[in-house]
Computed example of a mutant assay.
Amino acid sequence: MKTDVEKMTAEIDLTENSLYIVKDGKVTKVPAIQHGEDKIVWKNGDVLDWVRSERVRV
């Protein structure tokens, strides 16, 4: 990911499976996992947390 702080823009690779959270001008990349789920917790219109649960197959 390439960012330009002056222009407040970011360039991302669309061939990569990822989730990006933007909060207060800061970008956080949430990497993919093999199995599981991610939940985003919102408060007053802002992202508060992201919760990750991973599933293991046997």
Rank of each mutant, 00 (worst) to 15 (best):
M1F: 03
K2A: 12
K2G: 10
K2H: 08
K2V: 09
T3F: 01
D4A: 07
D4Y: 00
E6C: 04
E6M: 09
E6W: 05
E6L: 11
K7W: 04
K7M: 06
K7R: 14
M8Y: 06
T9G: 00
A10K: 01
A10P: 00
A10G: 05
A10D: 00
A10V: 01
A10F: 02
E11H: 06
E11P: 01
E11L: 09
I12Y: 04
I12M: 02
D13Q: 03
L14A: 09
L14H: 07
T15P: 02
T15V: 04
E16D: 14
E16H: 07
E16A: 11
N17S: 09
N17P: 05
S18A: 13
S18E: 13
S18Y: 06
S18Q: 13
S18T: 08
L19E: 12
Y20T: 08
I21L: 15
I21Y: 07
I21Q: 10
V22P: 00
V22H: 07
V22Q: 07
V22E: 09
V22D: 06
K23G: 03
K23P: 02
D24I: 02
G25H: 02
G25Q: 01
G25T: 03
G25I: 03
K26S: 10
K26E: 11
V27D: 05
V27Q: 07
V27S: 07
V27F: 09
V27L: 13
V27T: 12
T28L: 08
T28E: 10
T28D: 09
T28Q: 14
K29H: 05
K29G: 08
V30Q: 06
V30K: 01
V30T: 10
V30I: 15
V30W: 05
V30D: 06
A32D: 10
A32R: 06
I33C: 01
I33Q: 02
Q34L: 12
Q34W: 13
Q34R: 05
H35T: 09
H35D: 09
H35W: 12
G36R: 00
G36C: 03
G36S: 02
G36I: 01
E37D: 08
E37Q: 12
E37K: 11
D38S: 06
D38L: 05
K39C: 03
K39R: 13
I40Q: 03
I40L: 07
I40M: 14
V41A: 08
V41P: 00
W42G: 00
W42A: 02
W42E: 08
W42T: 08
K43G: 07
N44M: 10
N44S: 13
G45Y: 11
G45S: 03
G45F: 05
V47M: 00
D49Q: 10
D49I: 00
W50I: 14
V51R: 06
V51G: 06
V51N: 06
R52S: 11
R52T: 10
S53M: 10
E54H: 08
E54A: 11
R55A: 12
R55H: 12
R55K: 14
V56F: 13
V56R: 13
R57M: 14
V58G: 14
V58D: 10
V58S: 13
V58K: 15
V58H: 14
V58N: 14
